[in-house]
Nucleic acid binder design. Structure first.
Lengths: 180, 180
DNA sequence: CCCATTACCTAACGAATGTTAGACAAATGT
DNA sequence: ACATTTGTCTAACATTCGTTAGGTAATGGG
C-alpha cells in the first residue's frame, strides 16, 4: 500500500483517538481501547505512531495550527476591527463545529501533554489569544471598542464561544447556525 | 484519636484528592500520588476510603449537594424572579470561588464516575439546572424576562459563570469580586 | 494495667498499561 | 520471478495500577 493509504490510515487512527480522548479522556483511554475501535491489535498502532502521547500531540498541535492560521489570516486580510473580530469568531466557531472531537481534545486534554511539548502548546495557545488581543487593541484605536482589560475580554470571548462545544450536536448543523 | 480527628483527616484526604484531580485529572492521579501528597503510604488511604472512586464520588456529590441546596434556598426565600436569578448566580459564584478544586472536579471530572453513580450525578446536575429553569419561567410569568429557549438560556448562564473557574485565582479574591 | 480502637505501615497480589520484538501475509516494484 | 515494503499479528516485557492482608505502634477508656 502506498503513501496515500498510509496517510489515510494515520488520519483514521488520529480521528478515532480524538473521539475516544474526548469521550473518556486521554488518561482513561488505553491503546487497546483505541485498537478495538479500529478493529486491530494495540501493537499495530505502533507501526504508525511511536507512542500514545504522539497521538495527543498530533491532535493538539494540528488544532492549534488551524486556529492560529485562521486568526492570522483574519488579521492580514480584513481592515476594520469589528469585521476582524466578527470573522475571527466565525472562523473559531466553524473550526470547533467542524472538528468537534479534536476541538474537545484541544480545549481540555492538552494538559496531559508532558514537557517540553506542554510548554510549546501553552505558547501556541497564547499566540492565538494574542491575535484576539490585537484585534481588540485595533478596535480601541479605531474608537469602535471601549478600553477594556483585554486579557480578560479575550478569555471571556473565547470561553463563551467554546461553550458551543458543550451543547453543539452535529444533528443540529445549520439548524441554529449563528449568522455572521 | 477520636471522631473529630478522623473526620478532619478524611476531609484532608478529600481536599488533597480534589486538588490532584483538578491538577492532573482523575484518571491520571494514582493513589500513590495522593498518598505522597499526604505524606503517607497508598495503602493507608484505604483505612479511610474503600476505593479511589469513592473519593471522586465524595467530591462530586458534596458539590452537587451544595449547589442544589443553594438554588432551592433561593427559590424558597426570594419572591422576585430577577432577585432570584441574581442570588442564584451570586451563590453559584461564591461556591465556585470558595471551593475551586472541588468545583473543577464537579465540572470536569464527574464523567469518570461509573454507573450507577454516573446516572445519579447526571440527575442531580439536571435538578440544579431545573432550579434555574424555574427562575426563568417565573420571570417570564412576571413579564420581566423574555420568552427564550430556557434550556439553552440556563446552559448559557451556567457556562458563562463557570468560566470563572478558568481565570479565578485566590490571590485576586475581592480584587475584582463582582458586586451583586 | 489491659484491651480495643485508631491510623498507619510493609509486602504483595492480580490486572491493566504502554511498548517492543519478531513473524507472517499481502501488495508492490523491478 | 523474486525481493521489498507495508500493515498487521502473536507473544511477551517491565512497570504501574488499585487494592488486600496482616502487622505494629500509639492512644484512651474501664
Amino acid at each position: 500500500m502506498g503513501e496515500i493509504l498510509n496517510i489515510s490510515r494515520k488520519e483514521q487512527i488520529v480521528d478515532r483517538a480524538a473521539k475516544l480522548f474526548k469521550q473518556k479522556g486521554f488518561a482513561a483511554t488505553s491503546m487497546r481501547d483505541l485498537a478495538a475501535e479500529l478493529g486491530i491489535e494495540a501493537a499495530s498502532i505502533y507501526y504508525h505512531f511511536k507512542s500514545k502521547e504522539e497521538l495527543l500531540e498530533k491532535v493538539c498541535f494540528d488544532m492549534a495550527d488551524k486556529f492560529i492560521t485562521n486568526a492570522r489570516e483574519v488579521n492580514d486580510i480584513y481592515f476594520n476591527a469589528e469585521e476582524k473580530l466578527r470573522m475571527a469568531i466565525k472562523f473559531h466557531i466553524e473550526t470547533i463545529t467542524e472538528n468537534q472531537n479534536q476541538s474537545s481534545v484541544f480545549l481540555s486534554e492538552w494538559r496531559n501533554l508532558s514537557e517540553p511539548k506542554l510548554k510549546l502548546f501553552r505558547q501556541l495557545r497564547q499566540q492565538y489569544e494574542n491575535q484576539f488581543t490585537i484585534i481588540l487593541a485595533d478596535g480601541e484605536k479605531e474608537d469602535i471598542f471601549d478600553d477594556v482589560d483585554k486579557k480578560f475580554a479575550v478569555l471571556s470571548i473565547l470561553s463563551t464561544i467554546n461553550f458551543i462545544n458543550e451543547w453543539y450536536k452535529v444533528s443540529l448543523i445549520r439548524l441554529c447556525m449563528i449568522s455572521v
